[in-house]
Simulated scan of single mutants.
Amino acid sequence: MENRLGKGEVATARNWVDRAIAAIEADQRRSADTHLWKLDVPALSGIDLYLKDESTHPTGSLKHRLARSLFLYALCNGNIREGTAVVEASSGSTAVSEAYFARMIGIPFFAVMPRSTSPEKIAAIEHYGGLCHFIDDGKRIYAESAELAARLSGHFMDQFTHAERATDWRGNNNIAESIFQQLASERHLIPSWVVMSAGTGGTTATIGRYIRYKRHATRLSVADVERSAFFEGFSTRKLGCRCDRPSRIEGIGRPRVEPSFVPGVIDTMLRVPDAVSLAAMRVLSRRLGRRVGGSTGTNFAAMCFHAARMARAGEAGSLVTLICDSGDRYSNSYYDGAWLEANELDPAPFEPAIEAFLQGAGLDLDLAECHG
Rank of each mutant, 00 (worst) to 15 (best):
F305S: 13
A198I: 05
Y210E: 13
L288Q: 04
I24T: 06
Y128A: 01
I211G: 01
V222W: 02
A275Y: 01
D48I: 13
I354H: 08
I207N: 07
D18Q: 14
L189D: 15
Y73H: 15
M104N: 00
L148R: 12
A279Q: 06
S185K: 15
G83T: 01
F101W: 04
A149G: 09
A198T: 13
A23T: 13
N332P: 01
D27A: 06
L340E: 09
T206D: 07
N172L: 02
R271M: 00
A223V: 02
M281N: 04
A205F: 02
R312P: 01
T12E: 13
G208H: 02
I175A: 07
E355V: 12
I135V: 02
A353E: 13
A302T: 14
Q28S: 15
L66V: 10
E54Y: 00
G129Y: 00
S90M: 09
M269E: 10
V265S: 07
A280T: 04
T117E: 02
Q28K: 12
G208N: 03
P273L: 08
S318K: 07
R4P: 00
G92N: 10
F300G: 03
S91Q: 07
G327L: 04
D48E: 15
M113T: 14
S145M: 07
D325P: 01
H133C: 01
G78Y: 08
A184H: 15
I125P: 00
D48T: 15
I135F: 04
K139I: 07
T59P: 09
V283Q: 01
T167S: 07
E147R: 11
L75W: 00
Q359E: 13
A302H: 09
I122P: 04
C241N: 12
R29Q: 11
Y330I: 05
W16Y: 11
A279N: 10
Y100W: 12
A353P: 02
A163P: 04
R212F: 03
F234W: 07
A301M: 06
I21S: 10
K238I: 10
A32S: 12
R4T: 03
S185R: 15
C76F: 09
F231K: 10
A198N: 09
E25Q: 15
S247V: 02
Y330F: 07
Q159A: 11
Q182C: 05
H35E: 12
F101T: 10
F305H: 14
G293W: 00
L365N: 11
A198D: 01
S228K: 11
D40S: 09
L152Y: 10
L70V: 14
A124R: 00
M196D: 03
F305G: 10
A353S: 09
R14E: 14
C241I: 10
R4A: 09
